[in-house]
């Protein structure tokens, strides 16, 4: 099977709707097919990655810890759009620190998140074979 470039585009805040969780599940399932996977977080999608989420009082499952497992699934290209963060008064420090371990580099921990401008992300998006939007 030829390897294709897949990009999952996340645009929705978590908990208010099911999109964020559904996207994450599709990514995990899709990761089994050894494709070239990347994730983009734009608009309210950047809220999916905030650290310190605690859903105890709203009675929903807190799925934010699962983003930290993406590195294990070889999903290590996570693009976060700069403009979307800024509009929301957020910086990278407000987001979880996502890393992956490079097997070819003695399991060195490397950053998964790449902060990019809208224009840069548009270029990356244009290189994809398939974009799935959530």
């Amino acid at each position: 099977m030829a390897v294709k470039k897949f990009m999952y585009v996340n645009r929705k805040a978590p908990y208010g709707s099911i999109y964020a969780l559904e996207s994450l599940e599709v990514v995990l399932i899709g990761a089994a097919f050894d494709q070239d996977v990347s994730l983009a977080f734009i608009g309210d999608g950047v809220y999916e990655l905030t650290k310190g989420q605690n859903t105890e009082a709203i009675g929903q499952k807190n799925f934010s810890p699962t983003y930290s497992a993406l590195g294990d699934y070889d999903v290590n290209k996570i693009y976060v759009e700069k403009e979307s963060l800024e509009e929301r008064g957020l910086t990278l420090d407000d987001l979880q620190h996502l890393v992956w371990e490079d097997e070819d580099d003695d399991w060195a921990e490397k950053d998964s998140i790449r902060l990019v401008s809208r224009a840069e992300l548009a270029d990356v998006m244009a290189e994809q074979d398939i974009c799935l939007s959530f």
Binding site: P14, Y15, T50, G52, Q53, A57, I58, G89
Partner: peptide
Amino acid sequence: LGPDLQARGLEGKLADGIKVVDY
């Protein structure tokens, strides 16, 4: 609503002049 703010990890980002309430 505090529980919704906590769920989203944004307790520390609350703007001034807004009251937090529970259920």
